[in-house]
């Protein structure tokens, strides 16, 4: 018997995303696409050694994977477009190397805070479980930036970034572009 099956249903939450969940997940997907594109921009700016660039590329790929997974959950309701406001807010600050990494760390912390807020509003368990599995790795990304090239405990462990999550399960209004997600 699994732990989940032992659990007595107390007004069991829905499994699939509700209408409100879909708006929140759509916002999350657009944010992930924006951060994926920001990683690509950071790599274009350069200033990285080989191993460092590989790490930055890996993290960028993770964000695309998050967007794809959220898109899979949303199906036809997925926007598949990046949050252009978020992209524009940070793109010009990516000037290369260590400077870019500070911005990317801020973005990771921002996404961790944002998704935690989103999680606090999601009714459906499928969406909640997916977002939780993303939060934990985005926190790892942020901590990695705080650990390399040298350890700063406060930089690795503390997250003062504000959430971008829309308050309440309303349709998120984002300025989007036509960047698409392959599914």
């Amino acid at each position: 018997m699994t732990l989940e099956s032992q659990r007595r249903p107390q007004a069991a939450p829905p499994t699939r995303p509700t209408a409100g969940d879909k708006a929140l997940l759509a916002f999350a997907q657009s944010a992930e696409l924006a951060v994926h594109d920001l990683y690509a921009t950071a790599l274009e700016k350069g200033g990285y050694g080989e191993d460092e660039a590989a790490m930055v590329a890996l993290f960028g790929e993770h964000h695309l994977a998050y967007a794809q997974s959220i898109g899979g959950l949303l199906g036809a309701d997925a926007p598949n477009t990046r949050n252009d406001d978020l992209y524009r807010q940070f793109a010009s600050s990516l000037t290369g190397g260590a400077s870019s990494n500070r911005i990317l760390q801020t973005l990771e912390n921002t996404l961790a805070s944002t998704h935690t807020d989103v999680l606090g509003q999601l009714e459906g368990v499928d969406g909640a479980s997916l977002v939780a599995s993303i939060i934990t790795v985005e926190a790892r990304h942020a901590a990695a930036f705080g650990t390399l090239p040298s350890l700063s405990l406060t930089s690795a462990l503390d997250n003062a970034a504000l959430s971008l999550a829309p308050a309440g399960a309303t349709t998120a209004t984002t300025d989007t572009t036509e960047t698409t997600v392959s599914q």
Partner: peptide
């Protein structure tokens, strides 16, 4: 997520 950050360090 705090535990995950500890793990990274």
């Amino acid at each position: 997520q705090d535990e995950a950050r500890h793990a990274v360090v």
